[in-house]
Amino acid sequence: MRRRSLLLAAAMTIPLVAGCTTSTQDNAERTVVLVTHDSFSVEQSVLDKFKADTGIKIDVRKSGDAGALTAQLVLTKAAPIGDAAFGVDTTFAARALTEGVFAEYKPADADKGPQKYAVDNSGRLTAVDVGDVCVNVDLGALAGRELATPATFEDLADPRYKDLLVVEDPATSSPGLAFLMATVAHYGTKDWANYWKRLKDNGVKVVSGWEEAYTQEFSGSSGKGPRPLVVSYASSPSAEIGDDGKPRTSALLDTCFRQVEYAGVLNGAKNPDDARKVVDFLISETFQKLVPEAMYVYPVRDGVELPTAWQQASPRPEAPSTLPADDIQANRERWIEQWRTAVRA
């Protein structure tokens, strides 16, 4: 019996020892700690190639969603948890900038596309990708109901499309907030709340997150829910291509809101020189080509071609709505409150 417990004790120790040995680092190595959000994804081989080319090892640390990431960067600005950060988006950019989280750095390639999406002229944040939030439709389900595909915000409030739309709560969901902002941008600060009252009268359903909306309520996903209209991303249809090779869903390109994700060098970074090279890498052709498939977002660099499935099912929205980052920062809480009054009352 004693031998067995010894074995058990030994078995329990091995993983910790293994954990220790794998986490020890060679100090001579040039390492850049890249703090990012949960959705960041890149194949290991790409990081290995970058290391072989530059001698820099990128150490990826994920820190929750874009909001959590920004909050963490702000809290730790006196003693940063990394050298560079990627994933602060349109919604949170103003907070990171006013709090002085990022140092000034403008990559040489910034004018090859990223500059078009810049949040301001300070050159502290570099755009890396664009993820537009748009209403998605289940084409088959609408055809089955003998309904034409809607196109505009007005269509969504049209009684023909009663009880068909599901959206996310802007207080708890990032696409939910983006869609709210799309309506603010489209209808203006005076009328957007009235539009939501009309949506409510037209039977819009509100759930708290994207998972429930898309995988459970939406009829075009594997969950095969009851509603053929959902707030999701312009990129989502590229993942819902049928066995016949035809897209089963499509994004309404006139209902989109542009969310840009930014990267930058952190103020107080231990290794700022190499951190700049990592920001360069994020807008390099190599990395930009990968972002659609790895993270379901559009590249910002000019001339980077989209994968075939995207060209077919998820074309880039031409003229999505936008709002200035400062406006978002100043009004977010009030908008959510007004939205609550309009929709929940």
């Binding site: 949960d38 998972e211 995988t215 996903s221 594997s222 999701s232 991303y233 990129s235 993942a239 379901y296």
Partner: peptide, 14 residues
């Protein structure tokens, strides 16, 4: 699992 559920596409869901 959390990551997979947060992505579109039938295979991710499966």
């Amino acid at each position: 699992i959390g990551r997979l559920v947060a992505r579109p596409g039938e295979l991710n869901n499966q």
